[in-house]
Amino acid sequence: MEIDPFIFRLSIFILSIFIGYYVVWSVTPSLHTPLMSVTNAISSVIIVGAIISGLSGNSDSIFNTSSIFGFLAISLAAINIFGGFLVTQRMLAMYKKKKKDK
Protein backbone atom coordinates (compact mmCIF):
# COMPACT_ATOMS: atom_id res chain seq x y z
CA MET A 1 0.00 0.00 0.00
CA GLU A 2 1.20 3.47 -0.83
CA ILE A 3 1.44 6.29 1.65
CA ASP A 4 -0.77 9.26 0.90
CA PRO A 5 1.41 12.28 -0.04
CA PHE A 6 -0.60 14.24 2.48
CA ILE A 7 1.18 12.29 5.22
CA PHE A 8 4.54 13.49 3.88
CA ARG A 9 3.38 17.09 3.93
CA LEU A 10 2.02 16.60 7.42
CA SER A 11 5.41 15.23 8.51
CA ILE A 12 7.18 18.25 7.07
CA PHE A 13 4.69 20.49 8.83
CA ILE A 14 5.07 18.85 12.24
CA LEU A 15 8.87 18.73 12.05
CA SER A 16 8.95 22.39 10.99
CA ILE A 17 6.93 23.32 14.06
CA PHE A 18 9.62 21.71 16.17
CA ILE A 19 12.39 23.47 14.25
CA GLY A 20 10.52 26.74 14.72
CA TYR A 21 10.14 26.03 18.41
CA TYR A 22 13.86 25.55 19.01
CA VAL A 23 15.04 28.26 16.64
CA VAL A 24 12.73 30.91 18.06
CA TRP A 25 13.68 30.13 21.65
CA SER A 26 17.27 30.92 20.70
CA VAL A 27 16.30 34.37 19.39
CA THR A 28 17.59 37.04 21.75
CA PRO A 29 14.72 39.01 23.37
CA SER A 30 16.12 42.32 22.17
CA LEU A 31 15.45 41.19 18.57
CA HIS A 32 11.84 40.17 19.11
CA THR A 33 10.49 43.09 17.08
CA PRO A 34 12.65 42.29 14.04
CA LEU A 35 11.61 38.65 14.52
CA MET A 36 7.98 39.67 14.08
CA SER A 37 8.64 41.78 11.03
CA VAL A 38 10.76 39.11 9.35
CA THR A 39 8.19 36.38 10.07
CA ASN A 40 5.69 38.70 8.44
CA ALA A 41 7.85 38.94 5.37
CA ILE A 42 8.48 35.21 5.04
CA SER A 43 4.88 34.18 5.65
CA SER A 44 4.06 36.26 2.60
CA VAL A 45 5.61 33.46 0.54
CA ILE A 46 1.87 32.83 0.17
CA ILE A 47 2.44 34.98 -2.92
CA VAL A 48 3.32 31.77 -4.79
CA GLY A 49 -0.35 30.78 -4.59
CA ALA A 50 -1.40 34.21 -5.74
CA ILE A 51 0.96 34.07 -8.73
CA ILE A 52 -0.45 30.69 -9.77
CA SER A 53 -3.97 32.06 -9.80
CA GLY A 54 -2.88 35.29 -11.48
CA LEU A 55 -1.33 33.31 -14.31
CA SER A 56 -4.21 30.87 -14.58
CA GLY A 57 -6.32 32.84 -17.06
CA ASN A 58 -5.87 32.23 -20.79
CA SER A 59 -5.27 35.04 -23.23
CA ASP A 60 -9.01 35.58 -23.82
CA SER A 61 -9.78 36.07 -20.16
CA ILE A 62 -6.85 37.31 -18.15
CA PHE A 63 -9.30 38.81 -15.73
CA ASN A 64 -11.89 36.53 -14.23
CA THR A 65 -13.19 36.55 -10.67
CA SER A 66 -10.63 34.00 -9.57
CA SER A 67 -7.62 35.69 -11.14
CA ILE A 68 -8.66 39.13 -9.87
CA PHE A 69 -8.48 37.82 -6.32
CA GLY A 70 -5.10 36.37 -7.26
CA PHE A 71 -3.85 39.74 -8.55
CA LEU A 72 -5.04 41.50 -5.40
CA ALA A 73 -3.35 38.88 -3.24
CA ILE A 74 -0.11 39.42 -5.20
CA SER A 75 -0.13 43.10 -4.30
CA LEU A 76 -0.96 42.47 -0.65
CA ALA A 77 1.76 39.86 -0.28
CA ALA A 78 4.25 42.07 -2.15
CA ILE A 79 3.62 44.94 0.28
CA ASN A 80 4.51 42.55 3.08
CA ILE A 81 7.53 41.02 1.39
CA PHE A 82 9.18 44.32 0.48
CA GLY A 83 7.93 46.17 3.54
CA GLY A 84 8.79 43.34 5.93
CA PHE A 85 12.33 42.66 4.73
CA LEU A 86 13.22 46.33 4.31
CA VAL A 87 11.94 47.43 7.68
CA THR A 88 13.74 44.50 9.30
CA GLN A 89 16.91 45.54 7.53
CA ARG A 90 16.41 49.10 8.73
CA MET A 91 15.94 47.97 12.32
CA LEU A 92 18.84 45.54 12.35
CA ALA A 93 21.15 48.22 10.98
CA MET A 94 20.51 50.20 14.16
CA TYR A 95 21.71 47.52 16.56
CA LYS A 96 25.28 48.51 17.30
CA LYS A 97 27.84 47.48 19.85
CA LYS A 98 29.52 49.82 22.27
CA LYS A 99 32.47 51.60 20.69
CA LYS A 100 35.72 50.50 22.24
CA ASP A 101 37.46 53.90 22.05
CA LYS A 102 35.77 55.45 25.04
Binding site: R9, F13, S16, I17, G20, T39, I42, S43, G49, I52
Partner: peptide
Amino acid sequence: IGFTLENIALIITGALVGSS
Protein backbone atom coordinates in the same frame (compact mmCIF):
# COMPACT_ATOMS: atom_id res chain seq x y z
CA ILE B 1 -3.01 27.40 2.23
CA GLY B 2 0.32 25.58 1.90
CA PHE B 3 -1.44 22.24 2.35
CA THR B 4 -4.06 23.23 -0.23
CA LEU B 5 -1.42 24.18 -2.78
CA GLU B 6 0.81 21.26 -1.78
CA ASN B 7 3.66 23.74 -1.48
CA ILE B 8 6.53 22.79 0.80
CA ALA B 9 7.93 26.31 1.22
CA LEU B 10 4.57 27.55 2.39
CA ILE B 11 4.07 24.64 4.80
CA ILE B 12 7.52 25.07 6.36
CA THR B 13 7.13 28.84 6.66
CA GLY B 14 3.63 28.59 8.08
CA ALA B 15 4.83 26.18 10.75
CA LEU B 16 7.83 28.39 11.61
CA VAL B 17 5.79 31.56 11.87
CA GLY B 18 3.00 29.80 13.72
CA SER B 19 5.29 28.44 16.39
CA SER B 20 7.26 31.69 16.55
